[in-house]
Design a protein around this nucleic acid. Structure first.
Length: 784
DNA sequence: CTGTTTTAGTTTTTT
DNA sequence: ACTAAAACAG
């Protein structure tokens, strides 16, 4: 096989080129830089695989490389891969990263998406098998609750005793567990309205079917019904999906688990990636058990642990590992890193929530400036991670005052705002006259004189005649059942509706939206609205019109909105990130602040009350997630006093503070006891049992903060603490009696003032801020 | 039907 | 303490 008259220096013959390509495919460059475990996770393509990917171990890289690998080696074509995530963001990111590896071929990955979007696609194909049409609408939580409310009203269930929200929650729970009304365990029915749970659930499903609608839970549940009831359909999907991949497996609920098991049944080529230590969604149906029993469910499964952490320094990693070790139900991993050293986790106790925000803001300013041995940080490299959103306000207030730029991540989402949902209701009604829920929502928004009684009457007529509400309205308008004024209003509304529907086909949908908002009087009503939120709402609507341009047509737009309740944000400004621990999952920051580590706040009291030991373990995982977000520095803090729902409460440091290994922590407190007995940290936490401050914290390794204002060694409500700051507890009479009329005082919340009178344990104070006279039973600061 | 007063709820969040 | 929704009165 000698190539004819080919010179050694000439171009390689074609055969050689393809050989090279083959060699390249055998050891492709996308595998470069993977550690042995990661590589194993990528290359073990056949058979069940569970990848236990600890925090910061390169999970996403493994996931995307694995998919790219399957495609590059020709084991499957893009449309033969099923890859599911929980969020649109994760799906988007995965698609982008695969595209970066394998190029435009990634566009063929039509089964890469969230559980719900994939399930919705499948349901569109087989909708008739569960009594729906393929153009069914997907109701969000709000619609769902209103529908349930109607069912309860129709069934004369006392809404006071049995709130619709509760049934909505139960139904959601049932659907998460894969229970249709028929399969509902009898005991469950008892949780609502004297054993009527099941019947009401059934009625709700019936209403959904009539409306040709389903809720989010149904997407999965209907899939299950279809797969189990129609083996031929399931076999079809067995044929189609050669490889299955699941992200965040620890967050799957029972329905998702069953769905997956059905689809994986035949080929068993399923790869689940997750971390049992980061399971933080138990309260919405996630079953950690799914990941814990993977090996039992898929016999012969290969379990691969990714334990090398590329994110955090060793102190941070060790602190997090020490904390999570207190959890009993876990598979167990030992994370390690080559980034030895770094700063210890700093833990600090402060006087109150305000001191905490002052401390953190100071530190942010210092980090921003940089120092002798520290490089300046960008604002965006710092994050404050809180347990609950009410904790955010203190920081926002402080940041506004100091002009530190910040962004709050999460919060009420764009598409869930009332004005956006109103606008959508108009569109939905224009598109489909059968959409009763949309009709109810906007028939009197803006106010056009069609009140509750009229709407009820229309709905009654609709139910009687078995027609949609709009059709009922058309009938009623022709009669004299309504007052003249109401009739005219309704007639005008119907006339507008018809006109918009006629125009819908002729104009681009963003233009239609504008017209509807103007002509309905919606924007006018907002312009007249003097409340401070009205301006923002108008702007949201403008933004909405903008965003609509991204979809091809009205239909596509509404479809998109119902599944992707999320909008692409523009490039992030340089700002400190404030968010909940939940929304921080998957992110990382060089410097992380973890405020509010107090018993009852974090771990959340409610979580412990409702779910006991299980709840506590989930809280601990949340703490673990928090610490492992930090690359270089983590700062935990707790306050001795905190305002919760407007009330001042004494706080105890969180047990999680004690569970941090001493060797990796540097702790100090500005409050409370110092010099308690030795060994407290080693022998479990020592909570300050005294009914007084609760600010107390003591253990070896703790040092008194230099900036301390207090000299008294045992502060308590019974005594005045002498010190430069003169902080005084006045809940007890002896403390209040330390004051006399005319004393100058400072209160944490109300500011400066002077004492008007002392009576028992109460001080009456005239505050400088005009008109504020308050009776104080919490802490005030006496001015020297 | 609309404007005012009373009351309940207030962890975490996605689809 | 604050807010949003429900109940009530005009």
């Amino acid at each position: 096989m000698s190539p004819p008259e080919s010179h050694p220096d000439s171009e390689l013959p074609a055969t050689r080129v393809s050989d090279l390509a083959r060699v390249r495919a055998a050891a492709p460059d996308y595998l470069e830089g993977l550690n042995p475990e990661q590589r194993e996770a990528v290359e073990t393509t056949d058979g069940p695989v569970l990848v236990l990917a600890g925090a910061g171990t390169g999970k996403t890289r493994v996931l995307t490389t694995r998919l790219a690998h399957i495609l590059a080696t020709g084991k499957a074509r893009p449309w033969e891969l099923l890859a599911v995530t929980f969020t649109n963001k994760a799906a988007r990111e995965m698609r982008e990263r695969i595209t970066a590896i394998i190029g435009p071929q990634a566009e063929g990955l039509r089964w890469l998406g969230t559980f719900h979007s994939v399930a919705a696609q499948i349901l569109r194909k087989h909708a008739e098998l569960v009594g729906l049409k393929s153009n069914y609408t997907i109701l969000d939580q709000d619609d769902q609750e209103r529908l349930i409310k109607q069912v309860l009203e129709a069934e004369n269930v006392d809404a006071k005793r049995w709130p619709p929200k509760m049934l909505a929650g139960l139904i959601d729970h049932w659907k998460n567990r894969g229970w249709t009304p028929d399969k509902l365990p009898p005991a469950e029915s008892a949780h609502f309205a004297n054993n009527r749970g099941q019947a009401l659930y059934r009625l709700y499903q019936e209403r959904l079917r009539v409306l040709n609608a389903c809720d989010f839970g149904d997407l999965l549940l209907h899939n299950l019904t279809i797969f189990t009831g129609h083996p031929d359909v399931l076999a079809d999907y067995h044929e189609r999906f050669r490889y299955l991949l699941v992200d965040e497996y620890q967050d799957t609920n029972v329905a998702q688990y069953l769905w997956l098991r059905l689809l994986a049944q035949k080929r068993q080529n399923v790869c689940c990636v997750g971390d049992d230590d980061q399971s933080i969604y138990g309260w919405r149906g996630a079953e950690v058990d799914n990941i814990l029993r993977f090996e039992r469910d898929f016999p012969g499964a290969k379990v691969i642990r990714l334990e090398r952490n590329y994110r955090s320094t060793s102190h941070i990693l060790a602190a997090a590992s020490g904390l999570i070790a207190a959890n009993k139900s876990r598979l167990g991993k030992t994370l390690w890193t080559e980034a030895e050293g770094g700063e210890k986790v700093i833990v600090r106790g402060v006087w109150d929530g305000e001191a905490e925000s002052r401390l953190i803001a100071d530190e942010i300013e210092r980090a921003k400036k940089g120092g002798a041995d520290k490089n300046p940080r960008k604002y965006r490299d710092m994050a404050i991670l809180v347990r609950a959103s009410f904790q955010m306000r203190a920081f926002e207030e402080r940041f506004v005052m100091l002009q530190i730029p910040y962004t709050v991540v999460g919060g009420p989402r764009f598409f869930e705002r009332a004005e956006i949902r109103d606008a959508h209701a108009y569109l939905r009604l224009i598109q489909s006259e059968d959409d009763d829920l949309a009709f109810e929502r906007i028939v009197n928004v803006p106010k056009r004189g069609i009140g509750e009684t009229t709407v009820q009457k229309l709905l009654q007529v609709a139910r009687l005649n078995g027609v949609p509400a709009v059709a009922a309205a058309r009938q009623v308008v022709l009669t004299d059942e309504l007052a003249a004024r109401t009739r005219t209003a309704l007639a005008n509304f119907l006339r507008d509706l018809d006109r918009w529907r006629a125009e819908a086909g002729r104009m681009p949908h963003p233009r239609l939206m504008e017209a509807v908002l103007e002509e309905s009087g919606y924007t006018d009503a907002l312009r007249l609205d003097k409340s401070p939120t009205a301006q923002g709402r108008l702007e949201n609507l403008k933004e909405l019109v903008q965003a609509m341009g991204n979809s091809e047509n009205l239909q596509a737009y509404l479809e998109h909105v119902s599944l992707v309740m999320d909008m692409d944000r523009g490039p992030q400004a340089d700002a400190v990130q404030i968010m909940t621990l939940h929304s921080a999952k998957g992110l990382e920051f060089p410097l992380v602040f973890l405020p509010g580590w107090e018993e009852g706040v974090f771990p959340s009291q409610r979580s412990m009350d409702e779910s006991g030991e299980k709840g506590l373990e989930e809280e601990r995982r949340l703490a673990y997630v928090g610490i492992t977000r930090a690359r270089e520095e983590a700062r935990v803090s707790f306050a001795a006093n905190r305002q919760v729902y407007g009330r001042w409460t004494s706080q105890l440091p969180s047990r999680f503070v004690d569970e941090l290994p001493l060797a990796n922590v540097e702790a100090s407190s500005e409050t409370g006891y110092y010099g308690g007995g030795p060994g407290m940290q080693q022998h479990g936490s020592r909570w300050d049992e005294s009914p007084s401050f609760g600010a107390g914290y003591s253990s070896p390794g703790w040092k008194r903060a230099q900036a301390s204002n207090y000299k008294g060694s045992h502060p308590g409500r019974q005594q005045v603490i002498e010190g430069e700051g003169r902080l005084v507890a006045v809940s007890e009479s002896s403390a209040a009696s330390a004051y006399k009329r005319g004393d100058r005082v400072f209160h944490i919340k109300f500011g400066y003032g002077h004492v008007r009178g002392v009576e028992g344990n109460k001080l009456t104070v005239d505050f400088d801020k005009a008109g504020e006279k308050k009776v104080i039973d919490s802490f005030v600061e006496k001015q020297a």
